[in-house]
């Protein structure tokens, strides 16, 4: 069945809610309205007692989700836009991600927090953030970011079945960007496992989320010049698949990391630190990163300058390939 990412997520929610009666959905506008991106469309109708439109309060959404999970429910919360997650970070980092550790497993809070993130949707100010690296810095939390409909469904099902709190970041630019064949039934994709999208020998380009189509486009143009590019979709940034990244860099000796978020302390920095730990002597060239700038995400007339594009990825790749 052909589906876009929004439909694939909706499908995963539907299948899991049918399977697991403990799942409840909550968030702003997720019920009657089906979510502002329509990702939860139809679910309130199907499960009127398990889908809740909540008051407009992110801390409250995450905080009450934690309380529900302590009692044995499986809450799937939606935060409408990533820019509004900040008030809930206290709840995520002090409680959701810590309760297992601070009670040595006696209590757990395996909530799912779905969050549309990222720019290039002509969004209003504060509606375009991507600060996944902040979340990756929180021990006890997992952070999953799909970039295709197939992965979105498989990874969300795994996320819901995971015994740990997971933030599931949805690249909203890609919600309806393209469709692909998605199996009708349930299936899982492993959390913490990167995907090699294209195999290659000369250069590895690595990214996640909404950067993936740009990376693919750049790789096509690079390969047309006679190079062989390996593309890695990281898919989970916490815990991230160091093994796959290391193996690829050992093979190609060259790495370009692409991230939409601003540059300083972005997740690209962590990837490069990992390469420094493990693969420095296999490198043929310094690792390059293509990132957003150290600025707040601009209003939409300037977003075309702010977000990395295929051109910048190609230029960085050329630099790396010079060595």
């Amino acid at each position: 069945m052909k589906m876009n990412i929004a439909e694939a997520i909706n499908d995963a929610l539907k299948l899991e809610m049918k399977k697991n009666k403990n799942i409840v959905l909550l968030g702003e506008d997720v019920g009657v309205n089906g979510g502002v991106f329509r990702v939860t469309d139809g679910l309130k109708k199907k499960y009127p007692d398990r889908v809740f439109d909540t008051p407009l309060a992110e801390l409250g959404i995450v905080g009450t989700s934690i309380g529900m999970a302590l009692y044995g429910l499986k809450p799937i919360a939606e935060i409408q836009f990533m820019g509004f997650l900040w008030p809930a970070l206290d709840q995520i980092s002090n409680h959701a991600s810590r309760i297992r550790n601070r009670t040595m497993g006696r209590y757990t809070s395996n909530i799912v927090i779905r969050i549309p993130y990222g720019g290039e949707i002509r969004g209003l100010e504060h509606h375009t953030e991507s600060f996944e690296s902040v979340l990756s810095h929180i021990p006890g939390l997992k952070v999953v970011i799909p970039s295709t409909p197939y992965d979105a469904k498989g990874l969300l099902i795994s996320t819901i079945r995971d015994e740990n709190p997971v933030v599931f970041l949805e690249p909203k630019k890609l919600y309806r960007a393209f469709k692909e064949e998605v199996p009708k039934n349930s299936y899982t994709e492993e959390i913490g496992k990167a995907k090699i999208v294209n195999e290659g020998d000369d250069l590895t380009i690595l990214g996640w989320g909404a950067m993936m189509p740009k990376i693919k486009k750049a790789a096509e143009l690079i390969n047309a010049k006679g190079f062989s590019t390996e593309i890695i979709d990281l898919r989970t940034i916490s815990p991230y698949d160091e093994k796959t990244v290391n193996a690829s860099v050992e093979k190609t000796g060259r790495l370009v990391v692409v991230q939409e978020a601003s540059r300083t302390c972005g997740f690209a920095s962590e990837i490069i630190a990992g390469i420094n730990d493990n693969e420095l002597l296999h490198l043929k060239a310094p690792v390059a990163r293509v990132t957003g700038f150290d600025i707040p995400f601009p209003l939409y007339k300037m977003e075309k300058w702010a977000v990395p594009d295929a051109d910048r990825i190609i230029k960085a790749s050329k630099e790396v390939l010079k060595w």
Partner: peptide
């Protein structure tokens, strides 16, 4: 909010 959530559950 946890207490509210547990009670809600």
């Amino acid at each position: 909010p946890h207490a509210t959530g547990t009670a809600w559950a």
